[in-house]
C-alpha cells in the first residue's frame, strides 16, 4: 500500500452555512479519529484529495496528513468514509482513521475480476454478475494488499465464487461470512419483454398480463366492505345488499 502526503489545516468552522462557504472556497471538511484520542476537525483541499482518490481506482491508500501547525511526524491514516454530493458527486466530507502499524484494523479491499471477457460462461451467452466489489478484512496495516484477484476464466453458467473460495494472503481474515457470493454467471434472459419487466422490482404487476386488472387491489376498500358486511350478517342472511338497502330506507322516510 502506498503512502501519499496530504496537506491539511485545523478546522475551527462549525455549522452548515459556514461549511457551505468552506466548500465553495475549494476545501473539504474532514475528521481524524482513532486510538481513543479525541477527534480532530480538519480541512483538506478538494482538488488534492479528488486527484488522489481518482488515481487510486478504489484501492486503499495511507494518507500522511501534514496538519498545519502540528508538531512531530505526519499522521498516518486511512479513509474510513467519504461522502459525495447526491446530484453532482462532488466531495462533501471525509473521515480519516488513524493507523497504528502494530494494531490490526478492519478495512475494505477491492475485488478485481480477472479474465472477465474470456469467461467460459460469458462465451456461451451468460452474464457475469458481480455481487461483492470489496471484501472487508481484519489484518495488520502492513499486510493490506492492493486488491484481491478472482479468476473468472473457468466459470460456467450457473457457477459462482464465494468468499470461502477467495485466496487471501497470509495473516488476512475475511470479516464477511464464507458463504457470501462474490460473483456468478447467470444465464441469458430468454424473453426480454416478458421476463425483465417483472424481474428487477418486487411487488410489480404487468398491465395486460393474464390475471392483472387495469387497477390494483385496494386494501382499504376491502376492509370497509368486510366491516359493513359483518354486523349486518348477524341478523339477516340477505344483508350483503346493505348499501342498496340504505337509499331505499331514506326514500321511505321522505
Amino acid at each position: 500500500m502506498k503512502q501519499v502526503p496530504l496537506a491539511a489545516k485545523v478546522r475551527t468552522i462549525r455549522g452548515s452555512s459556514r461549511t457551505r462557504r468552506l466548500r465553495a472556497s475549494g476545501f473539504v471538511p474532514a475528521e481524524v479519529y482513532g486510538h481513543k484520542e479525541p477527534n480532530q476537525s480538519i480541512e483538506v483541499s478538494e482538488k488534492d484529495l479528488g486527484k488522489i482518490l481518482a488515481s487510486s481506482r478504489g484501492e486503499n491508500i495511507f494518507f500522511a496528513l501534514e496538519i498545519e501547525g502540528a508538531k512531530g511526524e505526519p499522521l498516518v491514516a486511512v479513509i474510513k468514509e467519504i461522502q459525495y454530493h447526491k446530484v453532482n458527486n462532488s466531495l462533501m466530507h471525509a473521515d480519516f482513521h488513524k493507523v497504528n502499524m502494530k494494531e490490526k484494523i478492519r478495512i475494505k479491499i477491492p475485488i478485481r475480476v480477472d479474465n472477465a471477457d474470456m469467461c467460459e460462461g460469458v462465451k456461451l451467452g451468460g452474464t457475469l454478475q458481480t455481487f461483492m466489489r470489496s471484501l472487508e478484512v481484519h489484518c495488520l496495516p502492513t499486510q493490506i494488499p492492493d486488491a484481491i484477484h478472482v479468476d473468472a476464466l473457468h466459470l460456467n453458467i450457473g457457477h459462482s465464487v464465494h468468499v470461502s473460495d477467495l485466496i487471501l494472503p497470509e495473516g488476512i481474515k475475511a470479516v464477511q461470512s464464507p458463504g457470501s457470493v462474490v460473483l456468478s454467471v447467470a444465464a441469458q434472459m430468454a424473453e426480454e419483454v416478458k421476463a425483465e419487466v417483472a424481474a428487477p422490482v418486487e411487488g410489480a404487476a404487468v398491465a395486460g398480463a393474464p390475471g392483472a386488472a387495469g387497477e390494483p387491489e385496494v386494501i382499504t376498500a376491502k376492509k370497509k366492505e368486510e366491516g359493513e358486511a359483518a354486523p349486518a350478517g348477524k341478523g339477516d342472511a340477505k344483508a350483503p345488499a346493505g348499501k342498496a338497502a340504505a337509499p331505499a330506507a331514506k326514500a321511505d322516510k321522505k
Binding site: Y84, A204, A205, P216, E217, V218, I219
Partner: peptide, 26 residues
Amino acid sequence: MLMPKRVKYRKTMKGRMRGQTKNGAS
C-alpha cells in the same frame, strides 16, 4: 407497463417535489 399489485388508496394527493432524493443516489 409497471404498476403496483395492491395499494392502500386508489387516489393520492399531488404532493410537492422539494429538495434532493432521499435514497437511491448511489
